[in-house]
Simulated scan of single mutants.
Amino acid sequence: MGSLTTKDFEALSDAASFKSVLKSKLEPKKYAAILEGVHYETELLKLQAELVDLQQWVAKHKKRVCVVFEGRDAAGKGGAIRRFTEHLNPRSMRVVALTKPTEVERGQWYFRRYIKELPEPGELVFFDRSWYNRAVVEPVMGFCNDEQYKKYMVQVPEFEHMLSEDGVIIIKFWFSISKDEQLRRFNSRLANPLKQWKFSPVDKEGQKRWDLYTSYKEQMFSKTHTSFSPWIIIKTNNKKEARLESIRYVLSKFEYDRKGESNTTILPDPNVVQRYHRMINQID
């Protein structure tokens, strides 16, 4: 395998010749990785164009759309949200990522701080973690007591039912990754000075308490998966695949103007995007 030179690029006339030169000069794995990257970027741009059309439709018809991103630490929630919002109009879109509650908020009804962040008519709101903190993270890490947890689990379906009845459209994603993949991503963060801020003591405990997380996660699914607010599982260790397929799912749920004009599939891959149901084999 040789290296690419200026002459190689000067001789190119179209995409086919470019691929041919790359294939002759690069190792098969590297060549495949480049093609995969190009395909991902091309698909992402097309889907982001569809999201712009969706946002205009939401604004025009005064819809209230709430997209919840949940999952274990390093599951890819933040990266997916960035791809969702990259080209959207910030005037009718928000990302909500709340910090830990204040002393005053801890004395209030649990859902109150989230109610204030719900979408206005014509707005899309993306929750980077949500009221479901109390379903998994808080009980696992000891941030709430058993009574608070039980009361919360009873109230969640009622809370979401009221939102649904009032016209709020809720899409709930759970980004699912394996334990080995989570550890690999943690190590990658620690090795990157630009990403070290993402790693916290809570993340470290996530690996130690993996099975406890799993137990609370399953309880959350079984008690809060409803017909009006179902859980959608994004089941893959591939970040790029997770981003594309979650965008496709959101697009598939609405009949907006110019839908499908980007000439890419809007329907998500059923091997990656699944409504919750009890499974014996799970990657997380």
Rank of each mutant, 00 (worst) to 15 (best):
M1S: 14
G2C: 08
S3C: 14
L4R: 09
F9P: 03
E10M: 09
E10W: 06
A16F: 07
F18S: 10
L22M: 10
S24M: 09
L26T: 05
E27D: 15
P28F: 03
Y31M: 06
E36L: 11
E43V: 07
E43M: 10
L47C: 07
D53A: 15
D53G: 14
D53P: 13
Q56K: 14
W57R: 03
K62I: 11
K63R: 15
R64K: 10
V65C: 08
C66F: 07
R72F: 05
G76Y: 05
G79M: 03
R82V: 04
R83V: 03
H87T: 12
S92H: 12
M93P: 00
M93I: 06
R94P: 01
V95F: 12
V96T: 07
E105G: 11
Q108L: 10
K116R: 13
E117H: 12
R129V: 08
R129C: 08
S130K: 03
W131I: 05
N133T: 11
R134G: 00
P139I: 00
N145P: 08
E147W: 08
Q148C: 11
Y149G: 04
K151C: 03
Y152G: 09
Q155T: 10
Q155N: 12
V156Y: 00
P157E: 03
D166A: 15
I170L: 10
I171L: 08
W174E: 01
S176T: 12
I177K: 02
D180W: 11
Q182Y: 02
L183E: 12
N187M: 14
S188F: 08
L190C: 04
N192L: 07
L194A: 09
K198F: 02
P201A: 03
V202T: 13
E205A: 14
Q207R: 15
T214W: 06
M220Q: 07
F221Y: 03
F221R: 01
T224W: 00
I234P: 00
K235R: 13
R243P: 02
S246K: 08
I247H: 01
Y249S: 01
D257S: 09
D257G: 09
E261L: 11
N263G: 13
L267Q: 14
N271E: 14
R275E: 14
R275S: 14
